[in-house]
Amino acid sequence: MVLKKAKRELEIVLRHIRVMKAVMKNQPIGIFKLSELTNMPKHKVRYSLRVLEQSGIIEPTQHGAVIKEGANLNELKEDLEEIKRLIKTIEEELKDV
Rank of each mutant, 00 (worst) to 15 (best):
I87S: 09
I90V: 13
K21H: 11
L34C: 04
G56V: 00
M1N: 14
E59D: 04
Q54I: 03
T61F: 03
R8F: 10
E78N: 06
L86M: 13
E91S: 03
P28M: 10
K42R: 15
I67D: 00
G30M: 01
T38L: 05
Q54L: 15
S48H: 04
R50F: 11
A65S: 06
D96E: 15
E75N: 04
L94I: 08
A65P: 00
L52C: 10
M40G: 02
N39P: 00
E93Y: 07
K95Q: 06
V66C: 01
I67H: 00
N26S: 09
K4E: 15
E81W: 04
A22M: 04
K25A: 11
E53N: 09
R8T: 13
N39T: 04
R85N: 11
K4S: 15
L76W: 07
R50L: 07
R15I: 11
I87N: 11
L14F: 14
N26P: 09
R85V: 05
K7P: 01
E59S: 03
A22S: 11
E81Q: 13
V2P: 06
H43L: 05
L3A: 09
Y47F: 12
S48T: 03
K33G: 01
E59Q: 13
R46Y: 09
S35H: 10
V19G: 11
K4V: 12
E81G: 01
V66N: 06
E53C: 01
R46Q: 14
L76C: 07
R85H: 07
F32Y: 08
K21L: 12
K68A: 02
E11K: 13
R46E: 11
V2R: 14
E69T: 08
V66T: 10
K84N: 07
A71I: 03
A6V: 12
P60W: 08
K5R: 15
L37D: 06
S55M: 10
Y47V: 08
K33Y: 05
E9Q: 12
A71H: 06
M24I: 12
K68W: 06
T89H: 10
K77S: 11
S55L: 13
K84Y: 05
S35T: 10
Q54C: 05
V45S: 01
K7S: 15
M40W: 06
Y47G: 07
I57M: 14
E69F: 04
R50A: 09
K88H: 08
K5T: 12
P41R: 08
I31M: 09
P28Y: 09
K4L: 13
H63C: 03
K68H: 08
Q62T: 12
A65L: 00
I83C: 02
K42G: 07
L52G: 00
K21G: 03
I17N: 01
K5C: 02
E78K: 14
K5Y: 05
E53K: 05
K7W: 07
D79M: 14
N72A: 05
E81C: 05
P41N: 09
K77V: 13
E82L: 04
R15C: 11
I29K: 00
K5A: 12
E53M: 00
G30H: 01
L52F: 01
M20K: 11
R8S: 07
I58E: 02
I90D: 06
V13G: 06
K5W: 03
E36Q: 11
V51S: 01
G30S: 03
Q27F: 08
Q54F: 12
L34Q: 04
E78D: 14
